[in-house]
Design a protein around this nucleic acid. Structure first.
Length: 444
DNA sequence: TCTGGGGTCCTTCAGCTC
DNA sequence: TCTGGAGCTGAAGGACCC
């Protein structure tokens, strides 16, 4: 690969850099030779994205599966693909695809159940590499993050060199590959990393953003999903360039104020969002799809109790209290509704969350509607230490909160699920509170 | 074909207060 | 005292992301 190719945004792989005698010189363009600015000048934003992250984590301990089509996902009757190796993708398999369809497309595909503890551990190692480079790290999920390296270039070199250094360290320390996009804005860096995949790095020079963007199909824009793409197609807009040359008013009428004006700006490469270190969670929730549709209100209430206890335990573990309780109900026909209530004071007590969730559910008056999924979520999170406690007149000195904190301590010592509400005893499962109900049971 | 789970952000609407 | 509008908040739903 020639230097000019790299400098003009051609994908650079790990092998290219490893084979080059002086990758730093290769990437920084040796300004002294030409006197021209480097292509990554004015490109302080890196987007780093692990390649097929969950699947790659699994392959570390299963080298016998390297090179085979493999997917990670639940193998139940309603499972979907969580991650697929590039070999599996050749068969048309992609994430979020129903497992049944993936098996039809590739009958010999190897299926592994997800192991989120492993992914969380690998992710922590990867994020530590990022934070070695810069404190300005904005994780988007377990497997990707934005980095602002403008403060690190004196110490570590130009952004593209930093990107390559990150790729090497992630590979050496975690045994997985990643791709890096280098650009002047977050949104272009994200597009660049996608186009660098797998195992590559792509610089989009600041003066070539528009020519990079305009030929792309609208669906490649961050924030344009199925519905938005349909709306844009109805307007005859199929490329980013089409959007750029459409009046903002037209976009706003079709997509709403925020999306319309946002897309119009993105189409010209304008993205004022800076890399932000996240302050904390905004909501914490859990939901469960039943193995088969359920119409027994007692079973559904028991599931609400299990989910409420789980949400509360996570709130306490992370030191939050939630002000609003939201329930989500998905019917057999996949239509979905939610109901919420804001409490007088924030809570991290499972019993309080459950009482609210149950009242919201009962108020729906569903009789025996067939449900596919229920969920419980706490929103409006604040630090539990700052949460005012609303004492009830008849509340004992030691109440549910203290009881649940004792359960937390028991769980930490004897394992999750060692103590659980009497109604949940005997419901099976491995998540600490009995798992999803698989069949109606008599109320305990 | 048949659609998980966790999360964020946006829009719309209704109710309340000033 | 009544009324309309602005602004805020909560609730509900939808779209999107990984």
């Amino acid at each position: 690969m020639s230097r000019s190719q790299i400098r003009r945004g051609v994908r650079l792989t790990q092998a290219d850099v490893s084979a080059h005698p002086d990758p730093r010189g290769l990437l920084d363009g040796s300004d002294t030779e030409s006197g021209t600015p480097r292509d990554d000048d004015g490109c302080p934003v890196l987007h780093v994205d692990m390649d097929a992250f969950y699947a790659s984590c699994e392959l570390r301990s299963r080298p016998d599966l390297v090179g085979l089509p493999m997917i990670v996902g639940g193998d139940g009757s309603r499972g979907v693909v969580t991650a697929a190796t590039y070999e599996a993708r050749k068969y048309g398999i992609h994430s979020a695809m129903p497992m049944s369809r993936a098996k039809r497309l590739c009958p010999q595909v190897v299926i592994l159940p997800p192991n989120f503890e492993l992914y969380t551990e690998v992710s922590a190692g990867v994020m530590a590499v990022f934070r070695d480079v810069t404190p300005l790290v904005e994780p988007l999920s377990l497997d990707e993050a934005f980095l602002d390296v403008s403060g690190a270039t004196r110490r570590l070199g130009p952004p593209a060199v930093i990107g390559e250094s990150i790729r090497s360290r992630v590979h050496d320390e975690q045994g997985i590959t990643c791709s890096v996009g280098v650009a002047s804005t977050k949104f272009v860096a994200k597009l660049a990393s996608t186009r660098a995949k797998p195992d590559g790095l792509l610089v989009v020079p600041a003066d070539r953003v528009v020519s990079f963007l305009h030929p792309l199909p609208v669906g490649e824009l961050w924030g344009v999903g199925e519905k938005t793409e349909e709306a844009l197609t109805r307007l005859g807009l199929t490329t980013v360039g089409d959007i750029a040359h459409t009046p903002v008013d037209t976009l706003v009428r079709a997509l709403g104020q925020a999306s319309g004006s946002h897309l119009a700006a993105l189409a010209w490469g304008r993205d004022p969002r800076s890399v932000e270190v996240p302050e904390g969670e905004k909501s914490i929730g859990n939901e469960e799809t039943f193995p088969r549709d359920i119409d027994d209100p007692d079973v559904i209430r028991r599931e609400l109790l299990r989910l409420s206890e789980k949400v509360a335990a996570r709130l306490r573990q992370q030191g939050y209290a939630g002000r609003t309780v939201v329930i989500k109900v998905r019917f057999a026909d996949f239509s979905t509704i939610s109901r919420s209530r804001t409490l007088r004071s924030p809570t991290d007590v499972g019993r309080e969350i459950y009482e609210t969730a149950r009242e919201l559910f009962d108020a729906l008056g569903l009789q025996r509607a067939r449900l596919r999924l229920v969920g419980v979520r706490a929103e409006g999170l604040i630090d539990a230490a700052d949460a005012p406690r609303q004492m009830q007149l008849d509340e004992p000195e030691l109440g549910w909160r203290e009881a649940e904190q004792a359960v937390d301590r028991a769980s930490a010592r004897f394992g999750r699920g060692s103590v659980r509400p009497a109604r949940l005893i005997g419901t099976g499962g491995d998540d600490g509170f009995g798992g999803a109900p698989v069949a109606p049971r008599p109320q305990s």
